[in-house]
């Protein structure tokens, strides 16, 4: 459950949001500059809420009036970043296994789990490649695996299909949907592509400037 009622403020940008997401996949659609990425960053704990309250996974995590702010590392959220943000000095496999090792899973077990999931997303063949050498599409798939592999309690996906080619788009969408359904958690998908959101989400929030 994610519940955000308040002002998302990042730098010059400021916007009032009122969003409740249960165990469902909610799409966020809108033009550039409507604060979609800022919304996700605020939920993840990378930007503090300007004012209002944010509840994630049943816990109040951000409430400026109460001087409450839970650090991102304690929120148990999986996130696909718009630019993927894979660690360039790690292999695709180590990137994918990273959230598991952070949750205390032993390195070998983490790599095994991550490896299986990379296979499901069609990037097992690049598992041993450095992330800096991956193509945009491969990098994005690894980023998706990294966001989902640790079974987080909420998932945020910022343009998760932007670098995926048309041929494999359907398959990646299905994989994401399948994994999110299995996790049965709150998920927010930000996209410019309405078709992606229609396919992935149970409902769509449309933001205009």
């Amino acid at each position: 459950m994610i519940s955000l009622h308040g002002t998302v403020a990042v730098g010059e940008f400021s916007r009032q949001f009122s969003l409740d997401v249960g165990n469902e996949i909610v799409g966020v659609f809108g033009a550039n500059g409507t604060g979609k990425t800022s919304l996700l960053r605020t939920i993840a704990g990378l930007c503090p809420l300007g004012e209002g309250e944010l509840i994630a996974n049943g816990v109040m995590v951000d409430a400026p009036a109460k001087h409450l702010f839970v650090q991102p590392e304690l929120r148990n959220i999986g996130m696909v970043f718009q630019d993927h943000s894979l660690f360039p000095f790690m292999t695709a496999l180590d990137n994918a296994a990273f959230p598991l090792t952070m949750r205390g899973v032993k390195r070998n077990a983490a790599r095994k789990l991550a490896s299986e999931m990379l296979d499901q997303f069609g990037v097992a063949n690049v598992a041993q490649q450095l992330a800096s050498t991956l193509s945009g599409g491969q990098s994005q798939r690894v980023a998706i695996v990294r966001a989902l592999v640790g079974s987080p309690q909420a998932v945020l996906l910022d343009e998760p299909l932007s670098a995926i080619d048309d041929e494999s788009r359907e398959s990646v969408r299905n994989q994401i949907r399948e994994h999110l359904d299995r996790l049965a958690v709150s998920a927010i998908v930000v996209s410019h592509d309405r078709a992606d959101l229609d396919h992935l989400c149970s409902r769509i929030e449309n933001y205009t400037r």
Partner: peptide, 11 residues
Amino acid sequence: KYEEAAAVMGA
């Protein structure tokens, strides 16, 4: 952004 990504992943 890399440190932010690591933080979100629990580091």
